[in-house]
């Protein structure tokens, strides 16, 4: 499992320029886009936070989303290139391969988000314990995203279709969630969509956990939904992955 996990993290960061550029874009979105718009968002519109703080914490979820969800694309490519055949010829059990891929996707998501964590910690002063707890929530969410990414990529046979479906789902899930704007700003039809969107619960729980102080309430519902999402998506993704291994990578 460690071998599969290590390879996934390494191959992701081999494209250092791509990862660095995406991180730079998210940082610029926070320090320029959100900073400027923060002046035009009335106080109290995003709860106790300013829009800049709200955006900085939401961008962590966005960053993790891109890094972890893309594990599905990697699994797809491995199937196409025959790398899965090679993995299966190694003395590694199938369940270890599946768990390794999901953990690899989650770890690389967390590693990608670390620079943004530093920025968020500067903008939203909090305790080390809160940061650790929010990292835990993000890790669980990233596990679910890996399952979702694998599920989507393996449900489609043609590469162009898989890429388009992934793009569409990513954009819809991120933009119809509370990662970038609060639910109160959305029109009613979008609020309904946001309530069905796991990214919303991950974003809300990260914000609540990060600014948690004694006396404030623990976001039990949000965290429970993130856990359910991770369990469901992870299980279905792993089941599909294992079914594909059984059927042979080229089928």
């Amino acid at each position: 499992m460690k071998v599969v996990l290590g390879r996934d993290v390494r191959t992701f960061f081999t494209n250092f320029y791509g990862v660095g550029f995406r991180t730079l874009v998210v940082v610029l979105e926070t320090v320029i886009f959100a900073f400027i718009l923060s002046n035009a968002v009335p106080p109290g519109a995003v709860g106790r936070l300013t829009y800049l703080q709200f955006f900085a914490l939401g961008s962590l979820v966005v960053s993790i989303f891109w890094a972890s969800y893309n594990i599905g694309r990697d699994v797809y490519w491995d199937r196409e290139s025959g790398y899965l055949n090679y993995l299966m010829s190694l003395p590694i059990s199938r369940s270890e391969i599946i768990a390794g891929r999901s953990l690899g996707g989650s770890f690389r998501g967390i590693l990608t988000a670390l620079p943004l964590y530093v920025l968020a910690a500067i903008l939203v002063p909090t305790t080390a314990l809160n940061i650790l707890e929010s990292l835990g929530v993000l890790f669980v969410f990233a596990l679910g995203l890996c399952g979702l990414g694998i599920m989507v990529s393996l449900s489609v046979r043609e590469e162009t279709r898989a890429r388009l479906l992934n793009t569409f789902l990513s954009l819809v899930l991120i933009r119809s969630s509370t990662a970038i704007y609060p639910v109160v700003a959305m029109p009613v039809w979008l609020q309904v969509g946001a309530r069905l969107n796991p990214v919303t619960y991950a974003s809300d729980s990260i914000r609540s956990v990060t600014v948690y102080s004694q006396g404030s309430s623990v976001p039990v519902l949000d965290i429970t939904i993130v856990l359910i999402f991770a369990a469901l998506a992870g299980t279905i993704g792993s089941w599909l992955f294992s079914k594909m291994i059984e059927g042979g990578p080229t089928e």
Partner: peptide
């Protein structure tokens, strides 16, 4: 998605 989700929501927030 930018127009339907992003612009609509930010338009009501800003």
């Amino acid at each position: 998605t930018g127009a339907a989700f992003w612009a609509v929501s930010l338009g009501r927030l800003v």
